[in-house]
């Protein structure tokens, strides 16, 4: 929604096109992150909005004209490269958020919108500081199904996802997490996952996270369009969610049973 709606605080109008930006897909696209963009675009279109997916190619400046900024997961070298591009465009992203744009940052993307990431070799990669969260590479790597009970203020149902990262992320004082982790690792500190800030959601959850959690996708769309959205049928998504949540609980119990056996020798 380029143009007039910006900065009014009452949404960004419905006249023009919703621009969903996939930032540096070549670098930050390791875990199907394109799926998050696709879900936002399609769910907007199904409700009659014009929406388009805008890819910001690595090396290009990030424009301030997007309505959604998606920062995805990436491996070490690509993450370092993405960080320098993001730092160069940090002001544009900030301007857009001030004007009502929203951000979804996942895994490496979460680390980079934080204040910084200390990698396994001790090297510091500065983030762009959209949220007060600092990450240090840790062990073991956290891999598997995750269940997050979201902050009540979001109004979201239970969140399901898959994590695969070595990050340990410490939230600054007063920074709210996306939710409480009941299965899996999340931030790896304090049994929480992600971070919440005005117009910003950050998480470690892949899957990707939006196809598995259409309510989270709709929350972002509500923020950016400024109004309540008509519900969509989601039989397949609900079936997938039920299956993944059951699987996460089952593997959680299996792990506990194994630990018990180990303790008893």
């Amino acid at each position: 929604m380029t143009g007039t709606g910006r900065g009014t605080g009452t949404g960004r109008g419905t006249e023009s096109t919703l621009r969903v930006g996939l930032v540096y897909p070549e670098l930050l696209g390791t875990y199907g992150d394109r799926g998050n963009a696709l879900v936002l675009v399609e769910r907007a279109r199904w409700r009659g909005f014009d929406a388009e997916l805008v890819e910001v190619a690595a090396g290009d400046p990030i424009p301030d004209s997007l309505d959604v900024y998606l920062f995805g997961g990436g491996e070490d070298d690509p993450q370092t490269m993405a960080a320098s591009g993001m730092r160069a465009s940090a002001n544009a992203v900030r301007r857009a958020i001030d004007g009502g744009a929203v951000v979804l940052a996942v895994c490496a993307g979460f680390q980079l919108i934080g204040t910084g990431y200390v990698d396994a070799g001790g090297e510091v990669i500065e983030g762009i500081g959209l949220v007060d969260a600092r990450t240090v590479a840790g062990a073991p790597r956290l891999i598997g199904e995750v269940i997050v009970e979201p902050e009540p203020s979001t109004g979201l149902p239970t969140i399901t996802g898959f994590e695969n990262h070595g990050g340990r992320t410490k939230l600054g004082p007063g920074v709210r997490p996306l939710g409480r982790v009941t299965r899996g690792g999340g931030n790896g500190i304090g049994a929480v996952d992600g971070a919440l800030a005005p117009n910003i959601v950050a998480t470690y959850l892949h899957g990707p996270v939006l196809p598995r959690n259409p309510a989270l996708a709709d929350l972002l769309l509500t923020w950016v369009t400024g109004g309540p959205l008509e519900p969509l049928p989601s039989v397949l998504e609900e079936a997938l969610r039920a299956e993944r949540l059951a699987e996460a609980r089952l593997t959680g119990w299996r792990a506990r049973a194994r630990d018990l056996r180990l303790e008893r020798g």
Binding site: G29, G32, D33, G35, I143, F162, N164, H206, G207, P208
Partner: peptide
């Protein structure tokens, strides 16, 4: 691969 998120690529 235990994570089928590649479906989206």
């Amino acid at each position: 691969g235990k994570d089928p998120s590649w479906l989206w690529d």
